[in-house]
Design a protein around this nucleic acid. Sequence first.
DNA 1: CAAGCTTACGTAAACGTTTACTTAAACAAT
DNA 2: ATTGTTTAAGTAAACGTTTACGTAAGCTTG
Lengths: 336, 336
Amino acid sequence: MSYTIKDVAQKANVSVATVSRILNNLPGYSEKTKEKVLQVIAEMGYQPNAIARGLINKKTKTLGVLLPAVSDTFASVVLSGIEDMAHELDYSVMVCNTDKDGKRTMKYLQALREKQVDGIVFVSEFFKEEYYNAIIAMNLPVVLVSTKSQYDIPFIKVDDREAVFDGVNYLLERGHRSIGMIAGTKGDPIATLPRIEGYKRALKEKEIPVDKRKIAFGDFGFESGITAAKELLDQNEDLTAIFCSSDEMAAGALSYLYRMSIRVPDQISIIGYDNTKVAEMAIPPLTTVGQPLYEMGKSAVKMLLDRETAEQKSVFMPHHIVERETVKVIENKETE
Amino acid sequence: MSYTIKDVAQKANVSVATVSRILNNLPGYSEKTKEKVLQVIAEMGYQPNAIARGLINKKTKTLGVLLPAVSDTFASVVLSGIEDMAHELDYSVMVCNTDKDGKRTMKYLQALREKQVDGIVFVSEFFKEEYYNAIIAMNLPVVLVSTKSQYDIPFIKVDDREAVFDGVNYLLERGHRSIGMIAGTKGDPIATLPRIEGYKRALKEKEIPVDKRKIAFGDFGFESGITAAKELLDQNEDLTAIFCSSDEMAAGALSYLYRMSIRVPDQISIIGYDNTKVAEMAIPPLTTVGQPLYEMGKSAVKMLLDRETAEQKSVFMPHHIVERETVKVIENKETE
DNA sequence: CAAGCTTACGTAAACGTTTACTTAAACAAT
DNA sequence: ATTGTTTAAGTAAACGTTTACGTAAGCTTG
């Protein structure tokens, strides 16, 4: 059993109030008693009990983070940013693996509420109405990372429409005219639809007709990249490039092309999305449109904790194309 | 401001004790009052305050997890296992990114203590004496995952010596006689030395002399795999296979070989360690000796929470070779 | 040197629970 | 009808802090 502030007070011959004041740097004691108390504390190895503290000042200095699959490369980088910034500001973080369905999320939300976290960051998951209700009921600051909602909840993400526009434009500028797309989950209003729009807009600006058969859907994971790539290749003979909505799917595409002995980028160019470590480690190293995942995590907690004072607004983070070795320049634009 | 148990009691015309009893399924109330209270609770949307609860029963139902780099593929899978099992047992987990140095770990240990976590799992980091002292001072159950210590702290890991023995033996059985090794951090008594011993023992059993120039050191990361592979290739012309102490380093090796236009496995075979997603996504898909990372995470929290009753013992988890496409069978054993 | 102000503390209530102890009623047994 | 036992509750202390309030001593000021 650990020592309490009472033990310290007793041993130092002062009241608990004095010890508390010293611990919290409040005025009200002489230099001499301060030294005495500090010495006693060191001797006993006393550590304040944050639970008792939390009970009285209604702040726990801990944050909740909800994300689908911690082991996902994407989410884990965001988490890492969150964790670092939280640590800098003396907060702890509770991770909640929501596992891509709903019931678990609600259970977590309840647990976080009971445990009195000071704020919640919600990563990349689709934000259901149910969650919104739960969250306003607990009256806590929340920020969304890499997702958004129809509600008035601040988010931090890149502008997907612009980002994929730039990505496929990058391909276009290098002479590609028949470009496939491996999109995310079909119908996803956050991470799929806007990206498809970006893709279409880029094509339209170059007056290239969009062809449904050039769009395949996946679930952002490696396996789905394989099957989507196969689908695309089977349905289109003239493809010279594929835009992938995640690096993992791009890795899947790469893997499929390797198995088919189709050389990248000589025969087909590939561009990914996210710029996770997967892109760096790919063979060949993957050109990708990068999101500042780590910084997004950091910003999220900064924003979350600022909210106590100022009301904050959503922010679009900058994206940028990371050039590596999976995109080839095509000289003759035969398609024109 | 949320409702408290007092509000519920008042509205239901009972005492707080009764409400508490109902909430905790203790005896001492009629079915009628139970229903009444439950109804009031539902109406108000009351949620118990786990902080107050924690203060009195000295259990917070939360665990601390210390690991180097959450974004690391290896650690994140372990974390995922930990999180899942914790959730199953109604615990929350606080993640602490120790960032491969010491000072931060101590700070975390202190924070976890102050926040009164019920147990700590320590993943893959080297366990310093300093940590040990801090931990016995806080008198908490701890379990080590994928690392061990000189102290009497239970661990969960695979038997590295055996695992790499099997790994290089797998190569040997397929006719390889000149096998390089990319080991971990030089001098690491946990994750490097035993593995090198396993490597040496396998060679010795086949009466192959061990050659220092065939062992290079890395830091388990991708980049270090590249430089170590280069080092190995530069120093040995006859190499037919490389054993890598992590999948990421293997991916680095793969990447280097690709750049050098050395075909895998035709010219050189590669075998990795861990069986993370990296191995699956590699090109070509990486043969590797797999650790049950996810299960190790799960077991860790099971063990941690069992300790309250029984004193538990360390366990070696089984490893197994995952055959993919980076190892080739060599027909003629010229070296003999 | 009296009145007021400041400093250096101490006392005790409060935070939201759980739980040991008490009590009153209902019921059972004789 | 009396005694004992069970049941259904209530009262209040306790968990380890913070903090509003009180107070005595010392200091300043005229």
